[in-house]
Write a protein that binds this DNA or RNA. Sequence first.
DNA 1: CCCATCAACTGGTCGGACCAGTGGACTAGG
DNA 2: CCTAGTCCACTGGTCCGACCAGTTGATGGG
Lengths: 256, 256
Amino acid sequence: MASGSQRGLQFEPVQPVRAYQRIVEQIEEALARGDLAPGQRLPSERDLVSQFAVSRSTVREALRVLESNGVVRSRPGDPNGPEILPFSPGPLRKQMTRLARVDELTLSELIAFRMIMDGAAIQLASRLRTPEQLAEMEQTLVEMRAAIDVDFTAFSEADVAFHEAVARVSRNSLIQTCNEVVRGVVLGLISDKIAHAANSRALMLESLQHHAEVVEAIRAGDGHAAARIARQNLYDYYASYVPAPDRDPLRALIED
Amino acid sequence: MASGSQRGLQFEPVQPVRAYQRIVEQIEEALARGDLAPGQRLPSERDLVSQFAVSRSTVREALRVLESNGVVRSRPGDPNGPEILPFSPGPLRKQMTRLARVDELTLSELIAFRMIMDGAAIQLASRLRTPEQLAEMEQTLVEMRAAIDVDFTAFSEADVAFHEAVARVSRNSLIQTCNEVVRGVVLGLISDKIAHAANSRALMLESLQHHAEVVEAIRAGDGHAAARIARQNLYDYYASYVPAPDRDPLRALIED
DNA sequence: CCCATCAACTGGTCGGACCAGTGGACTAGG
DNA sequence: CCTAGTCCACTGGTCCGACCAGTTGATGGG
């Protein structure tokens, strides 16, 4: 093809590379190469000024970007200079929260995502769990039961603890983070509605029952059943807040 | 509980909140509230200086952070001021890549995530697809077959097109984006290894065969089978790059 | 030997300055 | 009337110098 032969000298749109960006790149490269490791310190801003041969404003803009990406942390007065941080999922979480908060995202989509993630985590957990971890999960069940007589928020916290325990067992930090983020966003959207629910005690009891069944299936090592029950539980718990026409995809995730 | 009664006056560790951070927060809040929407413009830096009552350096540091998070874009000379950007998966992918590069995220975890997401997308697609969308998927299969005789990268591109078509049908943009991001990260990690694989043609043929089976299951409306085949395909495709002890959780996602 | 003092740094913020661009208004030419 | 060219107010990018509050480690007195 004629156009194919020209691919070699195709031009790319050129956007100006700003000075602070090249500083960020240099530091990130040094980090990728291993010349810079977590725990080490960067030279002070004024030293960086002379090393990079730019003004302090430029150095500071680069540092602010690195800081917001979780790469370094600056503390005023620290004579050792900015610290290289170990990698943390914090910024990833921030980005995912942003993604989940974009208004084009339906409550239905969020809950579908939770059903998928939570189901997968439980499926993995029923295969990978140790006896101690199983005991840990059962302990969170006890706490949930106790929380029913206290408060809805207490129950909600215990519920979160259960799901976090499961996510830990899945040994997949991506699942863990996604679950955490989506749960937070969903709760932010409808926590007020749930709190005002009339028959909350009945809901809590039913939810507890479902969770117990999940743990039972995990104990038996039946990941498939455990995941199905978990998804069903999420559906029962949230479906009433989802507009009826949007419930179809959720049901598609339950039926096998 | 005694400690429980004190929870009300528990103190939290306080770290200095810098001026530029509060600017970032205010703008992000306005965006979350909907007072600011993609496509709109921010006032010029000098206007922001007077609105926030801080210096231009501070405003600029805030803008640099927002810019590195993909929230705004500044162009020199633009009289309309910085532009609010629509959400882009770019920064998300950057963070995930960063984590993957330091083994904070295992290749095994990434692939497990892909198996989960892709499986779920296909399960949803087999329920929600229209006849036109089914035809669209079959079209991508044709392109994959044609690409086998061209190039591995061409095949890879066609494969991406297939998965994107499926993700679209799932009508869940969260799944869509997550899939896209993780796929990009995985490819960045092992694309070079795959390219050097000896029997790449055999692999491509096998992969095509699997994809065809998936489409067949989608046509039949058997979401469960379709998802299982898809996960199996991903496992066969990537397992050899995963350290043997890490393959156990992946297999847990295939067995039902 | 311990502890209070102090001075040399640190990062955070400010204000002003200059530059190379952009884009809209304005004007001369059709 | 419309078009094409010029021009200028304003944009963001960068630099400079200054001040402040805070930390830290050395210093010196008990």
